[in-house]
Amino acid sequence: MTLSGSVIDGQPPNQTTPTGPVPGPRRGRRRKWTLDRISFFIVFLGLPLALFLIFVINPFIQAGYYSLTNWSGFSPEQEFVGLQNFIDLAQDPRFTNAVGNSVVLGLVVPFVTLTIALIFAILITIGGAGRGQIRGVKGAGFYRVVSLFPYVIPGIAIGLIWRLILDPSSGLVNGVLTGLGLDQFESFAWLGNVTTAMPASIFVIVWGFVGFYMLLFIAAIKGIPAEIYEAARLDGAGRARMSWSITLPLIRDNVQTAYIYIGIMALDAYVYMQALNPQGGPDSSTLVMSQQLFRTAFAESKFGYASAMGVVIALVTLVFAALVFTVNRLAGGKDEGGAS
């Protein structure tokens, strides 16, 4: 959602797994502290850093503090309550329900999105007809360009459009289905039915992100030396076999990075869920943590409590990222450079 979309919009920075500063070029001799150099450091490092500290780090620290108070957001008074908010959260059925929904999103959305993206990426790169040279399907460029369309649409517009498409009476989906003779879908409320609301929401998010991850995987697959495929083919490996035992292992770190980024996005998902079902869906079945946080903070004016929710969201996110790392490592991947 922010970070200029990088993390929460599920946009991975163009790098493999962040593993910290790489060893930089050696600095030559020490230079003198001239005016040029001092002003350079102040402006080049000081200015961006000041902005970052004031507008990003500072609010996060404050929020961390508020999570330990009972501040209402309206009154100047606030009492330090220690971990009471967190104890209450654990017993708050509304929040635990929201956590549950978010975790579902965090597990299902990445899995579905990345599976589809990977399949399409493989089809486009090595799914084409032919012998000898491994190549993609014809018109790969077209598929690639079109696939990314949804990604450039603002999340709020995606939500708005799909809400109208899923409208029970005048939406496109029910129009098509009833047109096919499936009359049970007349006035069927996709977003208003406990069994379909969550799957429909997941579908919309997946729709928005498949293209981007597909592009990412295509790039990764193209990075695999062609000789490896040639060799495998000479050994008589079919496409499915090649995909499974060559492509997948070689791009596993790209998949891991992608998993973390889309997972973080899915754990938030505020824009989509709020646009599709602002009131949290039937029986609160699509209410996610971020929505509950907003509600608590601004409709119920319990800012301390809401901040505690924010801290929990941050923790869940970190746990998620750690989990993905661990799974990848257990499955035999290395932290760096599988694909390079």
Binding site: M1, T2, L3, S6, V7, I8, P13, V56, N58, P59, F60, Q62, A63, G64, Y66, G73, I264, L267, D268, Y270, S290, L293, F294, A297, F303, A306, S307, G310, V311, I313, A314, T317, L318, A321
Partner: peptide, 11 residues
């Protein structure tokens, strides 16, 4: 990069 923005909004 990894903090949820929600946490920061109010402050």
């Amino acid at each position: 990069l990894t903090f949820p923005v929600f946490l920061a909004i109010v402050p």
